[in-house]
Amino acid sequence: MTKLLKLLEEDGRLTPDQLAVMLGKETGDIKKMIDEYEREGVILGYQAMVDWDKTDRECVNALIELKVTPQRDRGFDRVAEKIYNYPEVRSLYLMSGGFDLAVMIEGKTMKEVALFVAQKIAPMDAIVSTATHFVLCKYKDKGIIYGTKEVDERGNSPV
């Protein structure tokens, strides 16, 4: 049921009742399917999209490019695990191209992020090099454009 997953990916707050009507199914079936997706780890969680720039909370994000020496038999998995277990790490991807791991880090200040990279990531055995890029402005994330408000600009001519 790709459609169900797509709908929930876009709006995790749709209720089973609403989803059932929209997809032409029974509410009970939708509940069962969602339960199963959650159990099987297809649906991993539900989050709100927050634009922290509109709040008092200080926060900076950075993308860290890591070059890594893969380990015999384990490849990148072991080092990835060591990195993603830090709560500061928001996302971690293995990449093709000029570097190996892309780490998205969130911290209170640039200094805090820089220290985290210098003290926790860079010293790991397998890490060959790091390059830290701070996010200056978030334009769009997870399909949602930042900074826009919901304004209906459609004209009200009698059509």
Binding site: D152, R154, G155, N156, P158, V159
Partner: peptide
């Protein structure tokens, strides 16, 4: 809260 428009959103 309008449900009047005759064009796509």
């Amino acid at each position: 809260i309008s449900l009047t428009v005759g064009q796509p959103d």
